[in-house]
Amino acid sequence: MNFDFDYALQILPTLLRATVITFQATVGGMVLAMIVGLALELLRRSGVKPVVYATKGFVSFVRGTPLLIQLYFLYYVLPLYGLSLETMETGILGLGLHYGAYLSEVYRAGIDGVPKGQWEAATALNASRTHTWLRIILPQAVPPMLPVFGNYLIAMFKDTPLLATITLLELLGTAQAEAAISYRYLEPYTLVGLIFLVLSWPSASLVRLIENRIRAENRNGR
């Protein structure tokens, strides 16, 4: 069986439209993950023991279990408790919680990286807690995290095909649907692979470039 270029060209527009869905899920998931990650890290630092333990437990549980089952759980279990979400919303929620657990550790490293003197200076200036976090600590903690966020963004992008299993017609789901009609697997799946490669390879290279630049700057700074 040979690669049928006419058929490939024919389904390409449909797949490219589905790429938009994939993008929406990725961006939505990432925004949520950044919020969830920060919230988890702040809870972990709250100093209230039960909250700290619950947060730690939640993070390691989410990190220790597959995204696929977490998606099933949200998709099949939430409606039983009256929470009916759109497929896309469920997908974003799943990605956001899963990657939020990972990002909370990134926040932790970033916040721990801010020198202790900065906290002391904030206290000396009599800054409020909110002011300290928003104006002093986070602006210093976030820039070094950015390449790590970039890597997780790319990882999440590559995890979006899992949303096909909860019926979201993103790239892979659409390819499956096309294959089900034509009984041809080679072209749809090859195209999906190529689209992922074309999008994620330059992004990964860009992140690596930024990483190297930051590393070089740090080296010169010392």
Binding site: K158, V192, G193, S200, A204
Partner: peptide, 11 residues
């Protein structure tokens, strides 16, 4: 690394 594990699996 540039493509998705699930896509590779289906392939």
């Amino acid at each position: 690394r540039g493509t998705s594990a699930l896509v590779q699996l289906f392939y």
